[in-house]
Design a protein around this nucleic acid. Structure first.
Length: 479
RNA sequence: GGGCUCGUAGUCUAGCCUGGUCUAGGAUCCGAGGUUUGGGACCUUGUGACCCCGGUUCAAAUCCGGGCGAGCUCACCA
């Protein structure tokens, strides 16, 4: 009894989210955050394999759609950075520099983001319309000297496992279509892999890169009621093409600037999935990114080891032949109960318990992490593929419901304050005017208007100026 | 950058206020041996810690100053 309480103490529940988050990441073996460099952590095998499942998925998605993987150097020439002067001026101090050689001279910057490395090359590659479109991506780490608080996988100095797609097109229309394709990528990753709702907003034009046409941003609704930016897709227009000289000769021999799109995100995907689905016992992994989808825990008694193991192996082989990722836990120095806890912290979706009684009856005990249900199933009736699919759907439905119930319409400032106090996201009418946007952001401390709904818009009165409004704006505290 | 809180084994912690049997206690983890296994088993045994520098004092884990580091929070930013 005492032990059980202390076990819950170890993880705690999500009401103290920052503490829960750190503890779960450690307890589940995702990362080791004791590495003595602020904003950088060690990825442990289990955590890395989850990340790699997601990366494999986006590799498939992008490549199936004709976007090719590339790799650009970690070091970026300073002169490349300076092509986008206003950005570099604001960013200089947050950029790591490479020094080497006798005089410790600055050799370049360490990639703070892909653009300054990639776009000068785009400029060399695009000569005529025949060279377009360029559609490439890379999955790399980027580096920023964050001065404020860092948080593993969420805000780091080493931003690991970050994909960025960059494309260049001859026409504005083609670029717009590309952007919509990227939206489909995000939707698929969120809904099919992470079992999370794809919560996308339009960014107002003044929050986009100067000269850009527009941008989408995805958000995650975290357990503490804040929202976290979690994936952007930017329609850069010709803004970057003009800075980096990315142009081509059209059919009349006339030079034209390219229309460009960039889209990127990284480990925040899984940070959001961990945070949303996890509970006081630890992680609950969405089945399709779980490195181990089924763990088999044999219940061994003295004298019957051989037959139980034999049966467990048989079950394992059967499931593996169906393409399911199975692990048989044969450790002899742990009791079954301890193994249950061990795999529950790690969030393995399904556990099969197999003991002598089950061998006798040709059945297994199927225990699901998501809803903590247990049932006996005859081996020939065992349908783990179906179970995993059901779990995924239930997890998705649950997280979607939480988001939908978390977004509430507000008609007054007072209501906005009340909603955010209750850890909700407020939705209000907004006239489209920047002053009103800024005023709405200042309704309360730490509040932020973070974009407008992409869904069909009604009409009402702007929360700030009371004029006719057709846009709805979201407000929350943000990361 | 501002405000608040805090640094004791791998991890969590007791002790600190009120300095002295603290030779720093417990839990867990880890190593060895035995025994066991249907929800964190048990027994024997072993290893392991006061963030750094200075000050006060007969005496500092404890009080004071500084440094370094961490967490939370606000303003910013993916």
């Amino acid at each position: 009894m005492i032990r059980e309480e202390s076990a819950y103490e170890v993880i705690g529940d999500k009401s103290n989210f920052p503490e829960w988050y750190d503890q779960v990441l450690s307890a589940a073996g995702i990362i080791d955050m004791r590495y003595d460099m602020k904003g950088m952590v060690v990825w442990l095998p289990y955590g890395l394999s989850i990340m790699k499942f997601l990366i494999k998925r986006w590799d498939e998605l992008f490549q199936k759609n004709g976007i090719e993987e590339t790799y650009f150097p970690l070091f970026v020439p300073i002169k490349y950075c300076e092509k986008n002067e206003s950005w570099w001026n604001g960013f200089k101090d947050e950029g790591y520099k490479v020094i080497a050689g006798e005089g410790n001279e600055i050799q370049g910057a360490i990639r703070p983001t892909g653009e300054p490395a990639m776009y000068p090359m785009f400029s060399m590659w695009t000569r005529s319309r025949n060279d377009l479109p360029i559609r490439i991506y890379e999955t790399v780490s980027s580096y920023r000297y964050e001065t404020k608080q860092t948080k593993p996988l969420i805000r780091a100095r080493e931003i690991t496992h970050w994909f960025e797609i960059h494309t260049a097109h001859a026409t504005k229309e083609e670029a717009a279509n590309e952007l919509e394709l990227h939206v489909k990528f995000y939707d698929e990753i969120y809904e099919k892999m992470l079992a999370l709702p794809a919560f996308r907003v339009n960014k107002p034009i003044w929050e986009c890169f100067p000269g850009a046409v527009g941008a989408y941003e995805y958000y995650s609704y975290m357990p503490d009621g804040r929202v976290m930016e979690n994936g952007s897709a930017n329609n850069l227009g010709q803004a970057y093409a003009k800075k980096f000289d990315v142009k081509y000769a059209d059919e009349n021999g006339k030079e034209q600037y390219c229309w460009m799109i960039c889209t990127g995100n990284g480990a925040r995907f899984i940070a959001a999935a961990f945070s949303e689905h996890g509970d006081k016992k630890g992680l609950i992994l969405p089945p399709y990114i779980a490195p181990i989808q089924v763990v088999i825990v044999p219940i061994i008694f003295k004298g019957n080891e051989a037959e139980v193991y034999k049966y467990a192996e048989k079950v394992k082989t059967k499931l593996e032949s169906q393409g399911i990722r199975v692990h048989l836990d044969t450790r002899s120095n742990m009791t079954p109960g301890k193994k249950y806890f061990f795999w529950e912290v790690k969030g393995v979706p399904v556990r099969l318990e197999i003991g002598p009684k089950d061998v006798e009856k040709d059945q297994v005990v199927v225990s699901t992490r998501f809803d903590a249900k247990k049932e006996f199933v005859k081996l020939d009736k065992l349908d783990i593929t179906g179970t995993l699919s059901n779990i995924h759907n239930a997890m998705y439905a649950k997280s979607k419901k939480r988001l939908e119930e978390g977004i509430i319409f507000a008609n007054t400032n007072k209501e906005v304050v009340k909603l955010l106090d209750e850890k909700k996201i407020a939705k209000v009418y907004w006239c489209g005017n920047r002053d009103c946007y800024d005023k709405i952001s200042k309704i309360g401390e730490g509040f932020e208007a973070f974009g407008t709904s992409v869904e069909k818009k009604g009409s009402g009165k702007c929360l700030s100026c009371n004029k006719e409004a057709h846009e709805t704006l979201y407000i929350a505290k943000s990361y």
